[in-house]
Design a protein around this nucleic acid. Structure first.
Length: 259
DNA sequence: ATGCCCGAGAACCTCGGA
């Protein structure tokens, strides 16, 4: 079982990159964020021709999340329970595992937050608290849970190209890292970090300035595995190759593989 | 340096992203 997460920053612009990546990597599940398109425009046929089912929730201009899958998904849930939010940031579904068990896959696009003193940060906090409640329920309902997405939080300074420059800033603040730690204390593990002790490995690089060429990045896209799934995990990596393409997303896929 | 670049929508600028 190969699971990947990729913030594509407009699926309309990136549909070729996604198609090429699906064919080259053949993931069982590809979770996308920042579709920036309404449901009517989702390229279902492009992916079905490659052997993938699509579950998605879109929105004009902003947000939007999708799960592409080789196997049909069931029990699809769009939006977090008890959280009235027009932004399309959450989709979850059940996916069959080879051993006959079921995987609960949850795909999120966590609010950016903009700045610690902004209203948008209060929204990020409220949203994240709801996510923790949803994951607590999900984990007790199904121990085989994987939560992926763009978290817009660096777990630690290992995940920041220049910790001094980012100290206390959005994505790198103590308060956000505590939010993430609290969420993970429900029983979720940073799968990439489990297999990779080294820093300077990033999933996002700013379009501005030197950006990718200077490796000025952050690791904010995560695959969080429940303990049952971590026990099945055999590898996790970041594939930088799509970031090198013409007109790339500013994020690149994060991958985890399970037995 | 609340900037640099990018995408969307609507109009040739603003908003949001990270």
């Amino acid at each position: 079982m190969k699971i990947a997460s990729w913030n594509v920053n407009s699926l309309r612009v990136r549909v070729e990159h996604v198609s090429d990546w699906l064919q080259a990597n053949s993931p069982d599940l590809l979770c996308l964020q920042e579709l920036k398109m309404v449901d009517e425009d989702f390229p279902i046929d492009v992916f079905s021709e490659l052997g993938y089912h699509s579950q998605f929730t879109g929105q004009k201009t902003y947000n939007g999340v999708a799960i592409l899958s080789k196997e049909p998904l069931t029990n699809v849930v769009i939006d977090m329970p008890d959280f009235d939010d027009p932004m399309r940031r959450y989709i979850a579904a059940d996916c069959p595992l080879a051993n006959g068990e079921t995987l609960r896959i949850v795909n999120v696009y966590v609010p950016n937050g903009q700045a610690l003193d902004s209203d948008k940060f209060q929204y990020k906090r409220a949203w994240f608290a709801k996510l923790q409640a949803a994951m607590k329920n999900s984990l007790s309902a199904n121990p085989n849970t994987v939560l992926v997405g763009d978290f817009n939080i660096t777990p630690s300074n290992l995940d920041v190209h220049d910790p001094k420059r980012w100290e206390g800033k959005i994505h790198c603040s103590d308060i956000e890292r505590l939010m993430l730690q609290k969420l993970m204390s429900e029983g979720l593990y940073d799968t990439y970090r489990h297999f990779n002790a080294d820093g300077d490995q990033f999933s996002w690089w700013d379009y501005r300035g030197a950006g990718y060429r200077a490796n000025e990045g952050l690791r904010i896209d995560l695959v969080l595995s429940s303990s049952a799934m971590l026990n099945k995990a055999i590898a996790s990596s970041i594939d930088e190759s799509p970031r090198k393409l013409e007109r790339p997303s500013d994020h690149t896929p994060v991958i985890a593989e399970y037995n």
